[in-house]
């Protein structure tokens, strides 16, 4: 697989949200607006790239039996680092995303990539994989956030384009499930046509 493909596969073929259906909790909870979705995606991408790099570098020295706890420690370290950085430079974003920043530790995408990719590939490939999957996650979260924001409050990236209120339910819980369901269906339709 070429280096370029490592980056692009995460966006369509192995899209973590719409195809692999991983990391559903932050996907549903933080996509109340496009900006929030994008920040969550970027935060996850940060942890994903760094943990992929470190895990691929040290994988050979970790005994097989304790590999999962070791990966979790590596991931948790970077999440703590991310918490400090966000508290210092983007306190407002940190406030909005709240609980879901520390919960990146248990995001199955990060641990899943460590187990499925980083521990048997080179450092460079793992970094590229982290960028690719991270980009895919960020794109899908931004898209889902954008759809919910447009329907729910009639704005896009914070700019209002219709007067008055939108359909409030789309900002709340039911809309999250519904919007995600329809996006998955559209994604399935588009990708299955391409394959034929």
């Amino acid at each position: 697989m070429g280096k370029f493909q490592l980056i692009t596969k995460g966006i369509i073929k192995e899209n973590p949200t719409f195809v692999l259906l991983l990391g559903m909790c932050p996907t549903l909870a933080t996509t109340t607006s496009a900006i929030n979705g994008m920040s969550m995606g970027l935060a996850t991408m940060f942890v994903l790239i760094l943990s992929n790099i470190v895990i691929s570098a040290i994988a050979a020295y970790i005994p097989d039996k304790v590999r999962i706890p070791s990966y979790i420690v590596v991931i948790a370290t970077f999440v703590t680092l991310l918490q400090f950085i966000m508290q210092a430079y983007t306190p407002a974003v940190y406030e909005t995303l709240g609980l879901f920043i520390p919960l990146i530790v248990v995001n199955c995408i990060v641990l899943g990539r460590a187990e499925a990719f980083a521990n048997k590939n080179s450092v460079v490939d793992s970094a590229l994989d982290g960028i690719g999957i991270g980009l895919g996650f960020t794109c899908s979260l931004t898209l889902l956030g954008l759809v919910r924001e447009m329907l729910g409050s009639g704005s896009a990236f914070g700019f209002k384009f219709i007067e008055g209120d939108g359909i409030l339910a789309f900002v709340l819980a039911p809309g999250a499930f519904l919007a995600l369901a329809y996006l998955i269906v559209i994604f399935k339709k588009l990708t299955s046509k391409k394959a034929e």
Binding site: L172, G175, F177, A181, Y182, I184, V185
Partner: peptide, 16 residues
């Protein structure tokens, strides 16, 4: 999964 998500959406609406 998609139909399960639609169901979850309706359930969430009920809980609202």
């Amino acid at each position: 999964i998609p139909i399960a998500l639609v169901t979850a959406s309706l359930l969430a609406m009920a809980f609202m």
